[in-house]
């Protein structure tokens, strides 16, 4: 019995953030599978879109995940194309991180070239601007 308590403690407060994030993501996907964000109002709204009418780079993420969980790839691509395009890479990175954590290791984020982080930033900003200029 105390072993279970220890395991729960390790999960909640231990140094395995990716494992925690993965369980959270699974739960969120299940909620999104059950409830369509366009029909239910308890999902968070994008403040930028509500205030200005402009779509931010993350707009459509929930609807895209809902569509994807129901196997509607084309609908998902319409809601948030960038998310769907990079999602295989996110999944691979997640799997790698979980594998490392299971062995007591972790990704050395300091080894990522600074240029790569700047590139991510530029891609996000460009995407945010382009999706408002090009009508879907």
């Amino acid at each position: 019995m105390p072993q279970i308590v220890e395991q729960i403690e390790e999960f909640a407060f231990g140094r395995k953030p990716a494992t925690r994030l993965f369980v959270g993501a699974l739960f969120a996907t299940w909620i999104l599978y059950c409830f369509n964000p366009t029909e239910y109002r308890f999902f968070p709204q994008c403040p930028l879109y509500t205030l200005t009418g402009w779509q931010c780079p993350g707009c459509g993420t929930l609807r895209a995940i809902h569509a994807l969980s129901h196997g509607q790839l084309q609908a998902a691509l319409r809601f948030n194309p960038l998310l769907i395009i990079v999602s295989p890479f996110i999944a691979l990175g997640f799997a790698r991180e979980l594998w490392l954590e299971a062995r007591g290791e972790r990704t050395n984020w300091n080894a990522i070239p600074a240029a790569a982080i700047w590139a991510i930033l530029i891609v996000l900003i460009t995407y945010g601007i382009l999706r408002n200029l090009i009508p879907a």
Partner: peptide, 24 residues
């Protein structure tokens, strides 16, 4: 990145990414 995507307004999250890049 999660803050930029999930928690609009984006400019705040973008500042966080800029500092992330500065670390490396």
């Amino acid at each position: 990145i999660l803050a930029t995507l999930c928690c609009c307004p984006p400019p705040l999250g973008i500042v966080a990414i800029i500092y992330s890049a500065q670390v490396n």
